[in-house]
Design a protein around this nucleic acid. Structure first.
Length: 424
RNA sequence: GCAGGGGUGGUCGAGUGGCUAAUGGCAUCGGGCUGUAAACCCGACAGACUAACGUCUUACGCAGGUUCGAAUCCUGCCCCCUGCACCA
């Protein structure tokens, strides 16, 4: 099996240039994917390209991750309906540091045969002069063909229009490919299906200027069957940084995968073999209530991104939280388990004088944004204390409510937990 | 620049003097069923305060005005769209 076959059966090939399959079966080559430095952390959406690079490496090819410090300063119009907010070079520099760290979790930078590399395209994009760029690169693009692109068309028809800056973006990306070809013999670019046009531009440029064969391959955009954007929860985007999305939440995100998506995601995001995947698909059919596929998916991906220790923590927390009673557990157990869950400290003195109305506690812990909201939640049976549903709006909390007089577990809805620690 | 159309709550979109904190869809949040799923059903959904009856703030592009009373009428301003004209 070669890389192309591997990507194919996993459903990762959306579009490809003519000779990709053949080339990948015969040669070891160098390939790259660009990552967007608009935030200090990547999110689960980036996991697909990350895994693609990792698979590539396992098949003996050399992966390059381009952290788009240069292009990130411009903004890619693909798939965007609005002009992008520009980031400062300092901000991008900071973001790149975080991204490098995350990429290193799935890519091997140490191996001597085909080590992964991270390269910042600001290295060359910020150096070339406008005149040189227009003479050497711009000449090879006709505005006619650029205008024909779907992404550009949409923007031309939109209210906002498109700035000259963003219009230029595909040229920059094409230029990246050319530079990587020259410096690293890079002959393949991967990307999401929204990158197809940009990738082709690079392939053409390399062919024209260097008379060399370059290839492109795109992967499908990850979709959800429920029609929600992949990677979003009530709490917002799911990040790869544990500080932004705790391993517990991360695990929960994957565990909550729709039945219809589970097998597909296993294909996309894990290293499981065809046989293993077939078994899980089977289990999903015959015993959907066990959710083996989702469990495996959540475990695999959490381990990959956060490591074994964090996974165990997430598993434990999940088990306790979605079990029935909290009774029988000590405060220490709970604190340990709930390490992952957001928490607030409460001074003992605040309970000494008088019981604290639950509605107020919900506000101070941030579980509810205002007393008003807190009451609405209570009225709607949306709040549990220590996993026991509370329906009285006037319910007040005393030190007695804390397990071992130390820990109190608040729950909003089905799966939003918050721990209150009693101190002092 | 000229002519026509339009700006309503997170979003789409009704409403054209009082019954309108504003119909409805979507999104969101809570509940039920179940498998921490999907689908479906119920409830909430401008905000704050109250145990509660309820009270008080803001709100229909902006600013004024008419009126007992305006998202709805008038005046000015801003922005957007569509057609026409013009264009280094």
């Amino acid at each position: 099996m070669n890389l192309f076959e591997e990507l194919s059966w996993r459903g990762l090939v959306h579009d490809q240039t003519a000779e990709v399959a053949e080339t990948l079966s015969k040669e070891k080559l160098t390939a790259y994917i660009g990552f967007d430095p608009t935030a200090a952390s990547l999110h689960v959406g980036s996991l697909l390209p990350m895994m693609a690079l990792a698979r590539l490496q396992r098949f003996g090819h050399s992966p390059i991750a381009i952290a788009g410090g240069g292009t990130g300063m411009i903004g890619d119009p693909s798939g965007k309906t609005k002009e992008r907010q520009l980031l400062s070079p300092e901000q991008i520099e900071l973001n790149l540091i975080g991204i490098k760290e995350q990429l290193s979790r799935v890519l091997d930078f140490e191996t001597t045969t085909n080590p992964a590399r991270i390269i910042n395209n600001a290295d060359w994009l910020t150096k070339i002069s406008l005149i040189d760029f227009m003479r050497d690169i711009g000449k090879h693009f006709t505005v006619n063909s650029m205008l024909a692109k779907e992404s550009i068309k949409r923007r031309l028809e939109s209210d906002e229009g498109i700035s000259f800056t963003e219009f230029t973006y595909p040229l920059l990306q094409a230029y990246d490919f050319l530079v990587l070809y020259d410096k690293h013999k890079c002959t393949l670019q991967l990307g999401g299906s929204d990158q197809w046009g940009n990738i082709l531009a690079g392939v053409d440029l390399v062919r024209r200027l260097r008379s060399a064969k370059a290839h492109g391959l795109t992967m499908p955009l990850v979709t959800t069957s429920a029609g929600v954007k992949f990677g979003k929860t009530e709490a917002g985007a799911v990040w790869l940084d544990a500080k932004l999305t705790s391993p517990y939440r991360f695990y929960q995100f994957w565990l909550n995968t729709d039945d219809r998506d589970a097998v597909r995601y296993l294909n996309y995001f894990t290293w499981l073999t065809r046989e293993q995947l077939a078994e899980l698909a089977e289990a999903l059919q015959t015993q959907p209530e066990k959710r083996e596929a989702q469990r495996r998916l959540a475990s695999e991906v959490t381990r990959l991104v956060h490591g074994e220790v964090a996974l165990q923590g997430a598993l434990q927390a999940s088990e306790v939280l979605f079990g029935k009673e909290l009774t029988g557990l000590s405060a220490n157990d709970l604190l340990d388990i709930f390490n992952e869950v957001p928490s607030t400290e409460l001074a003992n003195a605040q309970l000494a004088e008088r019981p604290l109305p639950l509605s107020e506690l919900l506000v101070t812990t941030g579980v509810a944004p205002s007393k008003n909201e807190a009451k609405k939640l209570l009225q709607g049976n949306g709040i549990c204390v220590n996993n026991v549903r509370v329906s009285e709006v006037q319910r007040a909390i005393t030190a007695e409510d804390f397990i071992d007089r130390q820990v109190l577990v608040l729950r909003k809805g089905a799966k939003n937990y918050h721990v209150v620690k009693l101190i002092g």
